[in-house]
């Protein structure tokens, strides 16, 4: 077998795996529809608004509900020190430079 054949075989395998990953993704998201529907039902029933990803502080727990327009969240001069808080995008008003 020539080297180029081996190479094509190798590249073919990898590309095949890439396609397989796409198929797997489609397949798994299809399988997850049930679970997602369950979660959606819970969101609707309990009237949830946020993901419970960042539970460290009250204003990161419910990002869409917290009053991010106030300068300090906990007390005057309470500088933000929670890791997830620092990764949240600043309000658009600040970024657009007025």
């Amino acid at each position: 077998m020539r080297k180029s054949d081996l190479f094509i075989l190798y590249l073919g395998t990898l590309s095949g795996l890439l396609l397989l990953s796409l198929v797997d993704a489609g397949n798994r998201s299809h399988l997850a529809t049930q679970q997602l529907a369950e979660t959606r039902r819970e969101v609707r029933a309990l009237e949830l608004t946020d993901l419970s990803l960042f539970t460290e502080a009250r204003y990161t727990r419910h990002l869409s509900q917290s009053d991010r327009h106030t300068p300090f969240q906990d007390h005057p001069l309470a500088l933000e020190h929670f890791p997830s808080g620092s990764l949240v995008a600043p309000p658009t008003l600040l970024r657009s430079g007025r």
Binding site: S21, R28, A32, S52, L53, E56, P83
Partner: peptide, 19 residues
């Protein structure tokens, strides 16, 4: 560890692939 930040309660979830 990075995503968890300081949250003690972190959900254990299996992500559904969307590509």
């Amino acid at each position: 560890p990075v995503l968890k930040g300081w949250s003690v309660l972190y959900p254990e979830f299996r992500l559904t692939p969307f590509i």
